[in-house]
Simulated scan of single mutants.
Amino acid sequence: MFECVFKFQGLDVEIAPDALETMLAHRQRGFFSSEAGGQMFARLSPGKWRIEVATGPRHGDRRGRFHFWPNRKAEQDEINSYFKQGLDFVGDWHTHPENRPHPSSDDYRSVANIVRESTHELPGMLMCIVGRENPPDGLWMSFHLRDGKVATVQYPDGAAPNKESYRRRKFI
């Protein structure tokens, strides 16, 4: 398993192999597979977030083929627990039943609510969507800023990346 690195306007976001493995383990490979999701926790340093832990799914989440509603109390407990371990909540991840995932309007509204309602000093929050394909093609990552702007992954010449070009993406 390799590490995924995304760059967003001066911020490098790295997903550690263990966190990525957690997310990929819940891909919706079968026709009737339910969406899954969780939270991402990172070690923060200037200009770099390293996602060390991806949680979920958890007891009490409501899941279906095209929806995922997390257990909010369990999420807050995770945030408190990981904060004591020196990890900051930096966003959510969830699956989509598509090869190359793209966010829905509900996804955008959900992450906007998280940015607005969370108590934090971060410039924004991340949203990761896991599709059926292997990374990097099967991952969507976006950075949602406090001012409502969204930075998403852009590929050179509109081409999808391969593993060799994964670390050299251009971003907005």
Rank of each mutant, 00 (worst) to 15 (best):
R65P: 09
R65E: 10
F66H: 06
F66N: 07
H67F: 15
H67E: 11
H67P: 01
H67C: 08
F68M: 04
F68W: 12
F68H: 05
W69Q: 11
P70S: 10
P70C: 10
P70V: 02
P70Q: 10
R72F: 08
K73S: 07
K73A: 09
K73M: 05
K73N: 06
K73Q: 09
K73F: 10
E75L: 14
E75V: 05
E75R: 13
Q76F: 12
D77A: 14
D77C: 09
E78H: 12
I79F: 12
I79M: 14
N80Y: 07
N80H: 07
N80A: 15
N80Q: 11
S81W: 12
S81I: 00
S81T: 02
S81D: 13
Y82F: 15
F83A: 14
F83Y: 10
F83T: 04
K84I: 00
K84G: 06
Q85R: 14
Q85I: 00
Q85P: 13
G86P: 14
D88I: 11
F89P: 01
F89G: 02
V90K: 00
G91K: 05
D92N: 14
D92C: 11
W93N: 04
W93D: 05
W93V: 04
W93I: 03
W93E: 06
H94Q: 07
H94Y: 03
H94P: 04
H94D: 02
H96V: 01
P97D: 02
P97M: 06
P97L: 07
N99Y: 09
N99I: 02
N99S: 06
R100Y: 13
R100S: 13
R100M: 13
P101G: 04
P101D: 03
P101I: 02
P101V: 00
P101A: 04
H102F: 15
H102P: 00
H102M: 15
P103D: 03
P103A: 12
P103E: 10
S104L: 13
S104V: 03
S104T: 12
S105M: 08
S105I: 08
D106P: 01
D106M: 07
D106S: 10
D106R: 06
D107H: 13
Y108M: 14
Y108E: 14
S110M: 12
S110K: 10
A112G: 08
A112C: 05
A112Y: 03
A112N: 04
N113L: 14
N113Y: 05
N113A: 13
N113F: 04
V115C: 06
R116W: 08
E117C: 02
S118G: 07
T119S: 15
T119E: 15
H120V: 03
L122Q: 06
P123H: 05
P123E: 06
G124R: 02
L126N: 01
L126K: 02
L126F: 03
M127Y: 02
C128E: 02
C128F: 12
I129E: 09
